[in-house]
């Protein structure tokens, strides 16, 4: 939605977009004032991420001589930003468009969306939590919006924010000890006993999320924003394993009003381990019958050359952040000229 006609004729639609553009300015000012360098990285990259469940958009550019450059639109600027960490930039942020093919075009998704990522090297997850909380509170204050909300519910960003481990959440909502459910076999048995369908093709994280999405996620961050941390190591992605307990990974997600807003990693800096994980993801893609491409060896080379440890990075969905601050009903109300709008115009 959000057509130019609505911006012209509909004060509410106009105000939502004005708020969005103001929030973008406030985010930038907040990072600039804290000595983060604003950087830019390419949207079209030679090697997109290997995440098995994300689908990059492919395109081919040609130079003046007609030589082809097969590219993909990035699904996240993560690799490029870590290359900048290796280049010696200790505090960086980027606000960029990212593209994920095959996503919904309304609600909480849009195939082209705006991501804010920032990194600290050296830096820790605890510092990123403080950054995130500080950022939301500063914006809330500037907008005069001490509470944020979705679907008519409101959550205060002004008071104390909460932090809970994934294990504590399973204890709280399922009365189960996640320490005993860290293998596929144990989790599958637990799921079946509670009436969930488990098929042979379901990986650990598939079973995990079936239960989590059903019983836990909708309840998260209702009273106050909540950081969920320490994910089972199967869901480590690009994060390092916790030095305190290697059964869990150094990763957190921020939930507000049942919606996932941000995802952060204590960055995995071990180049060989990273290469192994990317190759495993690549093999997983192949098994799913999805297109595959080479691992970004330049990213591995950047890790080998060294990034100051520990390093931490976070991705935060700007469209969702705007949705929360404005009380819009879906991100299609805070994006100008969405796919839905463009196609509606043509019909």
């Amino acid at each position: 939605m959000v057509s130019w006609r609505e911006l012209r004729d509909n004060p509410r639609a106009r105000q939502l977009l004005e708020q969005r553009w103001l929030i973008l300015r406030l985010v930038r000012e907040w990072f600039w004032s804290r000595n983060f360098a604003e950087v830019q990285t390419p949207l079209a990259v030679r090697h997109a991420g290997q995440e098995p469940y994300l689908n990059p958009v492919s395109l081919t550019l040609q130079d003046a001589a007609g030589a082809p450059y097969p590219l993909q639109l990035h699904t996240s600027p993560e690799y490029s930003l870590k290359k900048l960490l290796a280049a010696g930039f200790p505090r960086i942020f980027e606000i960029t468009k990212t593209f994920r093919d095959g996503e919904d075009i309304r609600g909480l998704h849009h195939p082209e969306f705006t991501l804010l990522e920032w990194y600290r090297a050296p830096g820790t997850l605890a510092e990123l939590m403080d950054d995130t909380e500080g950022l939301f509170k500063a914006i809330g204050e500037k907008l005069g919006a001490p509470t944020v909300g979705i679907s008519g519910e409101s959550t205060s960003v002004k008071g104390a924010w909460k932090k809970k481990t994934m294990r504590a959440l399973w204890q709280e909502w399922l009365d189960a000890d996640l320490n005993n459910l860290l293998t596929r076999e144990a989790l599958a048995e637990f799921a079946r006993a509670r009436g969930y369908a488990v098929t042979a093709g379901d990986a650990y994280e598939d079973i995990f999320f079936k239960i989590f999405l059903d019983k836990i996620e909708p309840r998260l961050g209702r009273e106050a924003p909540l950081f969920v941390y320490d994910y089972p190591s199967q869901m480590a992605s690009l994060s390092r394993l916790s030095p305190r307990d290697p059964r869990y990974a150094e990763r957190f997600e921020l939930y507000i009003g049942g919606v996932e807003i941000a995802n952060a990693f204590g960055e995995l800096l071990d180049a060989e381990e990273q290469l192994r994980r990317l190759e495993a993801d690549q093999a997983h893609r192949q098994k799913l019958g999805k297109p595959t491409w080479a691992v970004d060896q330049d990213f591995i080379a950047a890790l080998r050359s060294g990034i100051p440890a520990p390093a931490a990075g976070i991705a935060l969905g700007i469209d969702r952040m705007v949705l929360l601050f404005t009380g819009a009903r879906g991100i299609e109300e805070v994006i100008f000229h969405t796919l839905g709008d463009q196609w509606e115009q043509q019909n």
């Binding site: 996240s76 919904d104 999320f209 999405l213 996620e217 996932e260 995802n263």
Partner: peptide
């Protein structure tokens, strides 16, 4: 119905 992709993981349909 709504699609959910928790933490870049597999997609689910609620």
């Amino acid at each position: 119905f709504q699609h959910v992709n928790p933490g870049k993981g597999a997609a689910f349909t609620r």
